[in-house]
Design a protein around this nucleic acid. Structure first.
Length: 491
RNA sequence: GGUCGGAUGGCCGAGCGGCUAGGCAGAGGUCUGCAAAACCUUCUACACCGGUUCGAAUCCGGUUCCGACCUCCA
């Protein structure tokens, strides 16, 4: 089997993956800011990194997967004038800020469970790591890379730039940033306190009405936008670890700042592989809270949205996401979702007939080529669309055998079953639903009903047979007639 | 304005020098009392203009359009 290769944003090329410690991987992924219900945009990253995590595990790695919860709240855009997001929501809802954060955290985790995204090994909260963040800020200050002004602490990008390259990840240079900064009118709070427009806050002085604030060596305040990830990743994964993941929109400034903070505090690189997934777009535009074009996960599941005529299951959403490569944008539409859903069902119906395939002594089909194509694709920067295409190829071969055009022996049949299970279920994280009903009573009843209908059909009493079919359909059960008899499924 | 990505058939999406994925939709067919489902077969592409090459969707240059980031965001 070939080696895993990943596109590393740090270096902007495909690189062979090698873990720092043999057979162990430390992985940090930026989690949600819990100030609103989960929407479609929140979904792609977790699914992508879940597949990466599952694939690493499949290859025998022990993975420690850390995904944070940002519950401290950051400054919001122009309309909200420096008010803490969580505080703002709290006022609206008349709740404790932590109650709001907890509620959205629960909603987020519920959505992740629905999507079959495995829970992180550790899910640290920013609010629970204020001490670690303060300590890290202090270290950065002690080393001369940060300064205090009026109870706020800023990172000194100029001082950092003497020995380091601020912009190594995002490909920006500080001059361009300054040129760009003056371009539009952005009157961020505290801009004038900074030595350079490039400097970013490590600690922010809190105004009295700020609910979420903590005591620090610089007075009451709250941590800056980027320090939590640096502090918490170091605590749980070490000062240098293997993979740091996140959305492309976090590349700058968030990840760039994390690198600067960690390099100055710890004297070595933060993560060795930076993996960024692209956005889900809607009508070609990214979906974001700030653009107000988001579809909530619950709206998608329930079909309760102007762009949807009905609901779509979490599995469909997961399949939809995995049908595109993680580094490209993925354009959302109901039409595309329907396409994924139908394809997924077709694939799964093929999976469902594997165990019923008639075996011969010999096999006229092989699957070695498909198997190697699948693992080559996974190793090639996690090319899940090709993996899925190969699974369809496998489905095709299953059907050909089922139609009696080719033969299969029990060895190959079991191999197909195992491959499907490993790839589709274990690695892609698509749970294979069993066709067998867990309800024996229902089986008995349906068996009776279909028998009645079959005898009605035999007597050419089509009025009765169609009535049964229509009534069952209304109840959510679809009957399918074939030569072998009538089968049924619950929609 | 700066930095970085894109433009593939009706839609979603792979591919990254020759073998021209895959899914959905469309068309035809098998099956069927009729349906549905399932299965089989099949038609539509590489934004535009040059160049390199025996050969380009794929490499190079230019043009047009689109997006992301530079301000919280997955």
């Amino acid at each position: 089997m070939s080696e895993l290769k990943l596109y590393n944003t740090l270096g902007r090329n495909i690189q062979n993956f090698q873990s720092q410690i043999p057979k162990k991987v430390g992985m940090y992924v930026c989690g949600p800011t819990v100030y609103g219900p989960p929407h479609l945009g929140h979904v792609r990253g977790p699914i992508v990194f879940d597949v990466l995590r599952r694939f690493l595990k499949y290859q025998g790695y022990k993975v420690r997967f850390v995904r944070n919860i940002t519950d401290v709240g950051h400054l919001v855009g122009d309309a909200d004038e420096g008010e803490d997001k969580l505080q703002k929501q709290a006022k609206i809802e008349q709740l404790e800020p932590m109650e709001v954060a907890q509620s959205y955290t629960d909603q987020y985790n519920w959505a992740m469970d629905q999507l079959n995204v495995q829970r992180p090994s550790i899910e640290p909260k920013a609010s629970g790591h204020i001490i670690e963040q303060i300590e890290m800020i202090q270290t950065i200050m002690d080393k001369g890379f940060a300064y205090e002004v009026n109870g706020s602490v800023y990172f000194d990008v100029m001082a950092y730039s003497i020995e380091h390259k601020y912009g190594e990840l995002s490909g920006r240079n500080t001059d361009d940033l300054i040129a760009g900064a003056g371009n539009e009118s952005r009157s961020l709070e505290g801009q004038d306190e900074k030595k350079s427009p490039n400097d970013f806050a490590l600690w922010k002085r809190a105004t009295p009405e700020h609910i979420m604030q903590w005591t620090s060596p610089w007075g009451k305040g709250y941590p800056g936008w980027h320090i939590e990830c640096s502090a918490m990743s170091a605590k749980y994964l070490g000062e240098s670890f293997d993979i740091h993941g996140g959305g492309m929109d976090l590349l700058f400034p968030h990840h760039e700042c994390e690198i600067a903070q960690s390099k100055t505090a710890h004297n070595h690189q933060l993560a060795r592989y930076w993996v960024h997934h692209n956005m889900i777009t809607i009508n070609g535009q990214k979906m974001a809270k700030s653009l107000n074009n988001g579809i909530k996960v619950t709206e998608l599941f329930e079909g309760n949205h102007s762009l949807l005529s009905r609901g779509f299951g979490p599995k469909t959403l997961r399949f939809f996401v995995l049908q595109a490569h993680y580094r490209g944008t993925l354009d959302f539409s109901e039409e595309a979702l329907i396409a994924s859903e139908k394809g997924m069902k077709r694939l799964e119906s093929a999976i469902g007939i594997i165990k019923n395939l008639k075996v011969s002594d010999e096999s006229t089909i092989e699957i070695g080529d498909v198997k190697s194509a699948i693992f080559d694709a996974l190793n090639d920067d996690l090319n899940t669309p090709i993996v899925i295409a190969q699974l369809f190829e496998l489905a095709k071969r299953i059907q050909i055998v089922n139609d009696g055009k080719e033969k299969i022996n029990s060895v190959i049949r079991d191999e197909i079953g195992q491959l499907m299970n490993e790839v589709y279920n274990d690695i892609l994280g698509m749970p294979i639903t069993s066709n067998e009903s867990s309800n024996n009573n229902l089986d008995e009843i349906m068996s009776l009903v279909t028998d009645i209908r079959t005898s009605a059909k035999n007597e050419k009493n089509y009025a009765l047979s169609d009535l049964i079919r229509d009534r069952l359909r209304a109840a959510g059960i679809t009957l399918m007639d074939s030569k072998e008899g009538t089968t049924w499924k619950i929609d």
